[in-house]
Design a binder for these strands. Sequence first.
DNA 1: AACATAGTCAACCGCGCAAGT
DNA 2: TACTTGCGCGGTTGACTATGT
Length: 337
Amino acid sequence: MGRSPCCSKEGLNKGAWTAMEDKILTDYIKIHGEGKWRHLPKRAGLKRCGKSCRLRWLNYLRPGIKRGNITHDEEELIIRLHNLLGNRWSLIAGRLPGRTDNEIKNYWNTNIGRKLQNGTQNCSSSNLLQLDPNPNPKTREWPCPNNYLQNNIGSCLVQTKATRWPNNNKVILTKEIITKQNNEGMVHNHHINNNVNATDYKMKGSSFSSPVSPSSESNTNIDDDNNNNNNKNIEEALDFMADFQTEGNNLYSELLKMDFAEASSCLENNMLEGSGNNNNNNNNKHISTVDKAVGQLYPKLSFNDTHFHWPWSDSLYDTDFDFQHMENIIESGFDWL
DNA sequence: AACATAGTCAACCGCGCAAGT
DNA sequence: TACTTGCGCGGTTGACTATGT
């Protein structure tokens, strides 16, 4: 059965939008809100396709659209995210407040992509930015941290289409978990706080609840009994990654901005002192250490007497949390991200 | 000044997914 | 379960502008 066109093409305007059309669309959406794009043109009195209206609104008229050149920081983030996500422009745009997927896609194709082709891209601003010359999301293979995924899952992740999770999906630590951690100095389990079906998402030696992700099946059978520290740390990093509130502008972009290698180094060298909690019990020692390290690298993080607050959710993590492995996980391009 | 070429970016197009019926 | 509908996505196009000859 053939697919019906989104709207009748006859008698519709095409090409650049006029100021009058912009005003009509803006006024209509201010009153009636977004959505129902199919019927919007007729109701608003526009001779445009609904999809065209939607695109115009999202890419140009919508409040909060950031105009002007992409900054150096934004470019770095784009490169990093593209290295991680491939051509999933909407996901990348979601981590750059005010930027649209179209804008980022254009920027990539006209600037970064060309630099890659010419082999002149300078990665010096961050040695983490190892650009993949093959951005094709369908064929690209993702790098694996320390061969972990190859050894334990069977293959590198291959990018799939973006999966939308419910907006109110949030993975949090419950009091039970916090208590457990207080007793044992270690987080073992995560609970999910949402109103959608959740599936146990088992990782080696621990589990947390998560909506089924595109790659979850391939990630569920990593139950080998390898107890080496690398896997332990990867596991903890995965737990860490599960603990995000998947809504709002912070999302993963804030995480991705962090320099985990540096955080790891700070922790390792115990170089940051004089902040956080000075209580000497194990749990607070952990909090203090993490607070010291990340708090300086990432000012949005805050700390009170008993809790370390991440910008995406409240959580506590164990004393041995290894930010270097966090870096590896991020660079690996986790599909459920 | 006129033309050619390259670069930029808004807009279009077709496909696929998910929800609704 | 099959089909329809609405929407979002990524790839592509083409108009416009800048630069070079």
